[in-house]
C-alpha cells in the first residue's frame, strides 16, 4: 500500500490550519487469548492527518473498524507511560509518534513491547517490570531526625539527578534491551534509572543498600552497553550514561 497524499500544501505540512490527509496501512500483531493459539498479523487502512499520531490511527481502527483491538493509553501526550509499543521495530510511545515521521509510504508495523508476557494484542503483563522497579528501593531513605522545614539542597545537587527524575516507567528501555530479552531476571535499565535517581540525590542515605541490590548477579553488571535503551527512551533520558554512573559508583563507592 502506498500512501496517497491527497492535499498537501507546500511548506505548511504539519502546521495548524493546513489539513493534508493521506491513507496509511497499519500491520498490527493481534492475539486474543480466548480465541488464538498464537500471534498473527492483521492489516488496516486509515485516513490520517499530518498532525496525527500512531495512537490516533489505533483509535480510528478501534472506534471505526474493529472494537476488539486492545491497547493501553491514557494521557495521549507522552507523560503517563501507558502506550509503549514496537512501531516499525522500534520501541516508542504511540501517542508521541507522528505518523508522518515513521514513513507512511510503507505499512507501519505495530507489535507489543518484547520480553514481557503478551496478554492481548498490544497489552503485556507489566508486573515483572514493576517488580524489578520495586526491588531497587525507589524511595528516599534517610536517617536521624527530620528537619522542621524543607531539607536544604543546592540547585547544583538537585541538577545531579535531574535527568533520571523524568522517567515515566513506560518500559520502552527495558523491553528494547537484548540482555533482558534473553534473561527476564535482569533488572533492566528502567529499574537502574530509578535507582540512579536516588543514589545521586544528596538527601538520600540509602545508597549502599541500593548498590548492594544492584551488585547482584542480575544487576548492573549484566548491562552490555548496547545503547538500545537510550535510543528508545521517549523522555530523552541518557539511560546508558545513568547505568555507567551506577557502575562507577559501585567500583569507587563514591556517589
Amino acid at each position: 500500500m502506498t500512501a496517497t497524499v491527497e492535499a498537501k500544501t507546500e511548506g505548511t505540512e504539519g502546521k495548524v490550519g493546513a489539513v493534508p490527509t493521506f491513507t496509511v496501512t497499519l500491520r498490527i500483531a493481534r492475539y486474543d487469548p480466548e480465541v488464538d493459539s498464537e500471534q498473527h498479523w492483521e492489516s488496516y487502512q486509515v485516513t490520517a492527518h499530518a498532525t496525527d499520531r500512531v495512537l490516533d490511527a489505533l483509535h480510528q481502527i478501534k472506534w471505526e473498524q474493529d472494537g476488539s483491538l486492545s491497547f493501553r493509553r491514557s494521557c495521549a501526550h507522552g507523560v503517563c507511560g501507558s502506550d509503549a509499543m514496537r512501531i516499525n521495530g522500534k520501541n516508542r510511545l504511540a501517542c508521541k509518534t507522528l505518523i508522518k515521521d515513521v514513513n507512511p509510504d510503507k505499512p507501519i508495523t505495530v507489535e507489543p513491547i518484547k520480553g514481557l508476557p503478551v496478554e492481548k494484542d498490544l497489552i503485556v503483563d507489566m508486573e515483572p517490570f514493576f517488580d524489578a522497579y520495586r526491588e531497587v528501593m525507589p524511595f528516599l531513605i534517610t536517617t536521624g531526625n527530620e528537619p522542621t522545614r524543607e531539607r536544604i539542597q543546592s540547585q547544583q545537587d538537585r541538577d545531579r539527578f535531574d535527568d533520571t527524575t523524568k522517567c515515566i516507567l513506560c518500559a520502552a528501555c527495558t523491553t528494547s534491551c537484548p540482555v533482558f530479552w534473553n534473561d527476564g531476571q535482569y533488572f533492566g535499565p528502567a529499574a537502574i534509572v530509578n535507582a540512579h535517581r536516588f543514589i545521586f540525590d544528596s538527601r538520600d542515605e540509602g545508597g549502599s543498600q541500593r548498590l548492594e541490590v544492584l551488585n547482584d548477579k542480575e544487576g548492573v553488571w549484566r548491562c552490555r552497553t548496547t545503547f538500545n535503551c537510550t535510543d528508545a527512551c521517549p523522555r530523552g533520558i541518557q539511560v546508558t550514561q545513568a547505568i555507567q554512573e551506577v557502575k562507577r559508583a559501585l567500583l569507587t563507592s563514591r556517589f
Binding site: 524511595f139 524543607e150 531539607r151 539542597q153 543546592s154 540547585q155 538537585r158 539527578f161
Partner: peptide, 12 residues
C-alpha cells in the same frame, strides 16, 4: 520530605 525534587533557590 518524601523526596520530591523541587527546584531550588540559590540558598537551597
Amino acid at each position: 520530605k518524601m523526596g520530591l525534587p523541587f527546584n531550588r533557590t540559590p540558598e537551597g
